[in-house]
Design a protein around this nucleic acid. Sequence first.
DNA 1: TTGTAGGCGTTATCAA
DNA 2: TTGATAACGCCTACAA
Lengths: 338, 338
Amino acid sequence: MDGGPGRPTLRDVARLAGVSIATASKALNNQPQVRAETRAKVLRAAEQLSFSPNTLAQALITQRTGTVGLLTSDLEGRFSIPILMGAEDAFGTGRTSVFLCDARGDNVRERHHLNALLSRRVDGLIVVGARPDARPSLGRDLPVPVIYAYSPSEDPADLSLVTDNVGGGRLAVDHLIRHGRRRIAHITGDPTYGAAHDRARGALDRLAEEGLELAGGQVWFGSWSEAWGRGATRMLLERDPDIDAVFAGSDEIARGVLDVLHQEKLAIPRQVAVIGFDNWNILAANARPPLSTVDMNLEALGRLAAQRLFAAIDGTLGSGIETIGCRLITRESTAPLD
Amino acid sequence: MDGGPGRPTLRDVARLAGVSIATASKALNNQPQVRAETRAKVLRAAEQLSFSPNTLAQALITQRTGTVGLLTSDLEGRFSIPILMGAEDAFGTGRTSVFLCDARGDNVRERHHLNALLSRRVDGLIVVGARPDARPSLGRDLPVPVIYAYSPSEDPADLSLVTDNVGGGRLAVDHLIRHGRRRIAHITGDPTYGAAHDRARGALDRLAEEGLELAGGQVWFGSWSEAWGRGATRMLLERDPDIDAVFAGSDEIARGVLDVLHQEKLAIPRQVAVIGFDNWNILAANARPPLSTVDMNLEALGRLAAQRLFAAIDGTLGSGIETIGCRLITRESTAPLD
DNA sequence: TTGTAGGCGTTATCAA
DNA sequence: TTGATAACGCCTACAA
């Protein structure tokens, strides 16, 4: 059948079609300088052998593998997944594929994967951090363009794409205010996360514009867990039983908030509206009632990362931090006051 | 500095070290037939240029890319992630990397990714389905070994690695029985899933061994959602208020069960014990109380897939279906009766 | 112990 | 319009 034991090569196709390798190559890459008949013959031969060109050999010549590395520290978490999907989407049906590696927060592993990726000659790199705070740069003299997504790089010479957490916090509170809420509390997560402070700042800014104070007397920092959401809500209610809305810094926390509000027989959203952050579907959509929340548009972030990278591969890369806006997801845990 | 505009090649290293390309190659691949001094020179040169060999060129010769494709239909869902992690673990610090593609349940996209993977000359393929039921085979005449994980292939000539759902159901009920529970109900998901029936069968088998009947009069099939967990629990309690345990077919469902039991002021686990399935951490660990559940050992499944694949790459692949056992995760939603 | 030369599967540049 | 031929970067007999 074919020329040897392995998979068919261009040589096999050429032989079967009765042309030279060069001609076969041209026909397959539909270059103009080849007779229609000849092309048909070649195509038929290729089809017959179910020939698929060896990308490695092509890459050796073109210096382009059509491959992009996605180096994440947070596969288990939920953030890299939508970013990955967005990136895959942007590359779409083109010739670019995504090579995924999870460093799991381990520096050694990250270095290892970086080398693996580089030696496989990826055309570019997207680095996705586990948390929204700045992370060390991979370095300035990498042979391919690198884009940092979600976690910005500490080096301002790198290009980073991040979520607008301040805007997200503002969005959440704005939504509550528009629904007539006035006594709005904010329970959020780990205070070592910059994002927690950013979201709080956005919330406070919007409150200030309205001449409102934060209910509960403080931003309740704690941890990104349901348990903290429950605990904080209990303390909050003790201190300020009159709240009419809670902005939770994450959907997990929001679930805890809902839980305690139910225990306290407070009607949601009639008496107390609740809004979360992340739009983590499994938590938000299945809550009782389904949870309004802020979506960070991570797919869009992934798409943008892919586009920027694509442009950078034969051009030059920008630098600095670019911010992606959040969007509001309205479900049943928020509603107008009356 | 280096010989040209691009990244350093073996030629550059050789030139800098003052040896031939062949010698440089031997030195770098620590072959014995090279003088220690010479090797040192080469190594130093390579270091100095931060040379990293072009895997593509190597692969062209060795016919091995050190790359495995992981074709999933379920990235958003949680099943592929642990499988991927397990696979990455098994390949470990070796030379093998994992190339991930998500077909998102779309056949066209799957075909596209398959071609992309094949033309990049992956050494093997792991196919992870979105649900535990059988899926169409990719075909018998693929040029590389293929292993189906989680979803078995419909073709018995393929090798598939799957979860032992019957065993998992048995495990859950056994745990409840050992804790003195006698009136055990089972609420589970979509009846079009084979896994739902398998888990139910395991549960019923174990019950039968003990001479017990299922509480609630039936297996409650519905959907894999919290909402169904809530609805089913309400119906169940109406029909049979005396249950002392619920085995939920998924952690999502279990969350719904817990919710309604709380509403009904039933103490968990004192009056009613609850056990879930999946060990989806975000749901199970944060439940109130933390949820006992059955873990499908998906990392182990991924590891095994990687091992089998590795063995198959220079050997031959088995066929049929291989089953991985589940393991019990005990948290606070189950406890001895008194 | 080191170097020369051929080839892996393509593409691209010339001649024919 | 087609076909030799030289790369691409590396490995590996084989020769020196």
